[in-house]
Design a binder for these strands. Structure first.
Length: 426
RNA sequence: GGAGAGGUGGCAGAGUGGUCGAAUGCGCCGGAUUCGAAAUCCGGUUUACGGUUUCGCCGUAACGUGGGUUCGAAUCCCACCCUCUCCGCCA
């Protein structure tokens, strides 16, 4: 959620900035009208409440002394109805304002390049050199099919499109990747391992920004009248851990990591990446979340991105780091770096991680605060999240980059301890 | 799923219709005392929102959540949520 002050006192500039960066048109006239009515109604409501309270106290005092209260009672008689009407109307106005505020995206940081879509993204660095093959490299679907390692048909039978079944050594390699990543982040990067619920409330999803606007991207359950959602990323539970909390300054930055399943309905992406396990309804991800002081959040953002990059470097996978342009960024972010890993069969770099600073956008929705020792007042924290990294896509990248002519796959050295010392799977 | 108990400030815990945003204790902050510390004493110590002549002040709201009764609700009524104990079921 944007700072309400921006919509109240800097509406014209905010509207212009949202138009330029996000292509979002604000209904300026309606927002102004709502705010004017809100101000007038709130003042009036509070006056009436004040009046009722003072009169009621007078009645109490009079009764205490055994005095007659009929005159006082008559005085207060008309207040109730007007107050009730004013409160109801004020509630409607505030609801309308909240509905608008909850659907507005965050405003990008000034260092973010303007752009419409992914073609406006800027490469900031590149690591590793794509390997050369003495043979035509196969893609992960072909490599996985040879031994029944990767089986989309069985998955379709079980669940439908966009699921996969992994078997044998490939399933093990997948598990090894997740283990390796989480160990790296906990042991080397100072993140606290957290195991989180995969089903969360609507409130949690509103806190991180998936609701109310992106409900169609989520899987939902409705058991026993209780609506819960499958998490699209463990960013949701991890970040919501600080919802409605005031954390000590000494606890920041609060770095947390989780290995979890993620579930996405992938509405609006039909026809894209239908082959293989690039885009699935269900996948695994190791997530990084950091809760930071506002003054430190951009340094923390860079650090987090480097933590994700480290995963790819240790796996020996060539990648590049992209600074997303305004038009390609997610709803809650002010600044995002994507990591794109080299996939030799496609001859392109593909997204494998996304690291974002959300500043106070999520914190405001969640009332997530810290106590600033300088002011001794609660202030909103900044929240950051990044993939460190997507496990399924890392598996694809290892398969394709480490394949050999006979279809076997070498095991990256850092994964061998997790693979019983195996140097190759075949 | 069955039976019972309970949800109040950072924590513990009073309060069953009126000056209660809330006793008391602990904790924390400031001060006094002290060479310094402990102990003791004094004072302070929730949050959100709004207004404003903006670092001050004023107002409103909040005692699990949402409704209701009432001039007035932490307190009474209804519904829901959550926690704990015992039983059942279960990985």
């Amino acid at each position: 959620m944007l700072d309400p002050n921006l919509l109240r006192n800097h509406l014209a500039q905010t509207a212009e900035r949202l138009r330029a960066t996000r292509g979002v048109e604000l209904d300026v006239a309606r927002i102004e009208a709502l705010e004017a009515e809100r101000k007038q109604l709130q003042t009036r409501t509070q006056e009436l409440q004040n009046l009722r309270n003072t009169r009621s106290k007078a009645i109490g005092a009079a009764k205490g002394k055994g005095e007659d209260t009929t005159a006082l009672m008559a005085e207060v008689a008309g207040i109730g109805d007007e107050l009730k009407a004013a409160e109801a109307r004020l509630g409607e106005i505030q609801k309308a304002q909240a509905d608008i505020a909850l659907t507005l995206p965050n405003i990008p940081h000034e260092s973010v390049p303007l752009g419409k879509d992914e073609t406006g993204n800027v490469e900031v660095r590149r690591h590793g050199t794509p390997g050369t093959f003495a043979f035509k490299p196969l893609d992960h679907v072909e490599l996985g099919a040879r031994k029944g390692w990767l089986d989309g048909e069985s998955a379709a039978k079980l669940s439908g499109a966009r699921f996969t079944v992994l078997r044998g050594e490939l399933a093990r390699l997948h598990r090894a990747l997740a283990q390796f990543m989480i160990d790296l982040h906990t042991r080397e990067h100072g993140y606290l391992e957290v195991n989180v619920p995969l089903l969360v409330s609507a409130e949690s999803l509103q806190g991180t920004g998936q609701l109310p606007k992106f409900e169609e991207d989520l899987f939902a359950t409705n058991t026993g009248d209780v609506r819960r959602y499958l998490i699209p990323t463990s960013e949701v539970p991890l970040t919501n851990l600080v919802r409605d909390e005031i954390v000590d300054a000494g606890a920041l930055p609060m770095r947390m990591t989780a290995h979890s399943m993620c579930f996405r309905a992938e509405a609006g992406s039909y026809g894209r990446d239908v082959r293989g396990m690039i885009r699935q309804h269900q996948f695994e991800k190791v997530e990084l979340v950091s809760i930071a002081k506002p003054s430190e959040s951009y340094a923390e953002h860079d650090r987090m991105t480097k933590c994700a990059e480290k995963v790819l470097e240790l796996l020996g996978l060539p990648y590049r780091t992209m600074l997303l342009c305004t038009g390609d960024m997610g709803f809650a972010a002010t600044k995002t770096y994507d990591l794109e890993v080299w996939l030799p069969a496609q001859g392109t770099y593909r997204e494998i991680s996304s690291c974002s600073n959300c500043e106070s956008f999520q914190a405001r929705r969640m009332q997530a605060r810290w106590r600033n020792p300088e002011t001794n007042k609660p202030e909103l924290v900044h929240t950051l999240n990044g993939s460190g990294v997507a496990v399924g896509r890392a598996l694809i990248a290892v398969m394709e980059n480490y394949q050999q002519a006979d279809g076997s796959i070498r095991v990256p050295e850092v994964l061998r301890p997790y693979m019983g010392g195996s140097e190759i799977i075949e």
